[in-house]
Simulated scan of single mutants.
Amino acid sequence: MKSLFITVISLCCFLLGCASVALEPQAISNASKEFKQPNPNTAGIYVYRPSTIAGDGLMLAAYIDGECLGTTAPNTFLYKEVPGNRNYSIASESVVSPNELKIYISGGKNYFFRQTLTIEGLIAGIYTAKLTEVSENTGKEAIKDMKQSKTGKCEYDYHLNSLFD
């Protein structure tokens, strides 16, 4: 009984914990939250992660075309300006299955992707991350009070799709 109690308490701490990631300086975060329209040859990509009831103790990596965009924690976002008018793969780290959106990114626009996390059952460490494209207004409203995670810094720096090849 005592071991069951310890297991349940440990699981609760894991699921409800608080993850911490490296952050960009406040000036860079504020500049990214101005949401300036990119020039016609580039596009802005925002990936943000709201806080959820479960999984706040986990960090999640995000990738653009297999390259590290950065790592999110709850209430953080990532921003990168990329060449526009081409196809991209936007992916999120996930243990259960790869999560990848293939999308054409037009120049002169900002794109917003919400990264959410669900815990699979009661097994600690088994989670699914999901990316969803959202409207510009929805993305701006969500990001306005968030902090910007360090771009290009993935805590583990590997793409989990390789686990499913």
Rank of each mutant, 00 (worst) to 15 (best):
P25Q: 10
A142W: 03
C68I: 11
G17V: 05
D56V: 03
A22G: 15
L78T: 07
V95F: 14
Y111D: 03
A124R: 05
G125V: 06
S162D: 15
G152N: 06
I105K: 03
A124D: 07
F5I: 12
T76M: 14
T128Y: 05
I6P: 00
E93V: 07
I28W: 00
Q37V: 06
H159W: 11
Y48S: 12
F35W: 02
L131F: 10
L101G: 00
T72V: 15
E34Y: 05
E24Q: 14
I45A: 05
N99M: 13
Q148W: 01
V96N: 09
V21R: 03
T151I: 05
G55V: 00
E136K: 14
S29L: 05
L16G: 13
V21M: 03
I53A: 12
E81K: 07
L15F: 09
F5T: 14
Y111C: 02
K102C: 03
A27P: 02
P83L: 08
L11I: 13
Y127T: 00
E120Q: 10
T42L: 04
S92E: 02
N110V: 03
S29H: 07
F164Q: 09
I90C: 00
H159T: 08
G108F: 04
T128K: 15
S106T: 08
K2D: 10
A129L: 01
S3D: 12
C18K: 14
C12T: 12
C68Y: 08
K130Y: 08
I53R: 13
L16D: 03
S92P: 00
E34I: 05
I126G: 06
E34G: 06
R114L: 04
K150A: 10
T118N: 10
Q26V: 10
L69E: 13
G17P: 04
Y63W: 11
N99R: 07
T76A: 10
V95R: 12
Y156H: 15
L4P: 00
L60Q: 14
M146W: 01
N41D: 15
F164A: 07
D157S: 07
K2S: 10
